[in-house]
Design a protein around this nucleic acid. Structure first.
Lengths: 150, 150
DNA sequence: GAAAAATAAATTGTGCACAATCAAACATTA
DNA sequence: TAATGTTTGATTGTGCACAATTTATTTTTC
C-alpha cells in the first residue's frame, strides 16, 4: 500500500526515520506498557507508581512539591491524587499553616504496597537488556536533555 | 536477572532519582512541549505532526500501516484521523479491493503544510543543544531499546 | 492596614493512549 | 460451500497531559 517517496521528501529531515524525538516518544510509551503487567498486579498506573516512589521516600509532600519533582501540574495531579485517595492509599488535606497548599500523606495501605513493588525495578532492568555502561551513558544524555528542556 | 542487589542498594532502586524510565517519560513530555509553539502555528498536535511526516513522504497509507510505523493502534488513530479529516488535511476511504482496510490519503491542504513545517526539525535540534556525536549515540541506544521493547 | 500582586489548587475542555469488545470482511479448510 | 478462524477498524470506557481560567489564600507594597 505504501507509495514510493515523493521528490519533496527525499533526504529530508522531515522523515520519521530521521527524527530523534519520535524514538523518545515511542520508547516512553513502550516502557509504560512494559510496566503495565507489573503494575496491574498492584492496581496501579505508571503515573500513580511515580507518585508512590516519592511518597515511599518522603512520607508526605505537597501537591506543588510532587508537581515539581514529576514535572506535572495540578490539572494532572489533582484528579490522579483523588483517585488514589479513593483507594485509601493517601490522604489529602490543606496545610493549616498555609491554606493554599494541599498536603498529600501516605496511608498504611499505600505503605503496604512498597514491599510488593520492590521487585519492579530489577524486573524492568531485565526487560531492557542493557549493560551497566549503556545505562550510565543513557542516563547522562537524558539528564542533559532534561535540564536543557526543563 | 541482572545483578542481585545488596540490601541498601535494593531500597535505592525504588527512588525516583535512581529510575531510568522516569527520564524517558519526562523527556518525552518536555519534547512534545518544546514542539508545541512550533506546531501550534500550523494548528497541529505532535501526534498529528507524526502522521504528516509519514503522509508527506508516502502520500497515502492504510490505518494499519500508520499504526505499525507509529506503534499506535486504531483506538488512538481513528479519532485522531477523523479530526484531521475534518480539517480537510486528508481523506479516509475504504480500500475497494479489501474493504477491511481504510486508506488515508494526503489532500492539498495537508500537502501545503509541508513547506510551513520544514524549519521545525532544525529549530528542535537547536533547542536540544546536542552535538552530532551525542545525537548519533543517543539514536543508537534508543533504537536498541525500541527493538528490545517492541 | 487596604489595595495590588503573587501563589497554590481546582476546574474546564480538548486530545491523546490504550485495554477490551465488537462487527464486518476476508481467508482457510474440511 | 459451509463452518471456522483471522484480519482490520471502529467503539467504549478509563486515565492521563496540559492549556486556560477561576477561586482562595498569602504576601507585598504603598
Amino acid at each position: 500500500m505504501a507509495t514510493p517517496p515523493t521528490p519533496s521528501a527525499k533526504n529530508s529531515l522531515l522523515k520519521l526515520e530521521n527524527q530523534l524525538c519520535f524514538p523518545f516518544y515511542a520508547v516512553s510509551r513502550l516502557l509504560t506498557k512494559a510496566y503495565q503487567p507489573l503494575l496491574q498486579a498492584l492496581d496501579l498506573t505508571y503515573p500513580q507508581y511515580l507518585v508512590f516512589l516519592l511518597l515511599w521516600e518522603h512520607e508526605q509532600l505537597t501537591v506543588k512539591e510532587l508537581g515539581e519533582k514529576l514535572l506535572l501540574d495540578s490539572g494532572t495531579l489533582t484528579p490522579l491524587l483523588k483517585r488514589m485517595e479513593q483507594k485509601q492509599w493517601l490522604s489529602r488535606r490543606r496545610d493549616p499553616r498555609d491554606e493554599r497548599s494541599v498536603i498529600i500523606a501516605l496511608l498504611p495501605a499505600g505503605r503496604a504496597l512498597e514491599a510488593r513493588a520492590d521487585q519492579i525495578p530489577l524486573l524492568m532492568l531485565d526487560k531492557m537488556q542493557m549493560s551497566e555502561g549503556e545505562i550510565t551513558a543513557l542516563r547522562t544524555h537524558l539528564t542533559h536533555l532534561l535540564t536543557q528542556l526543563a
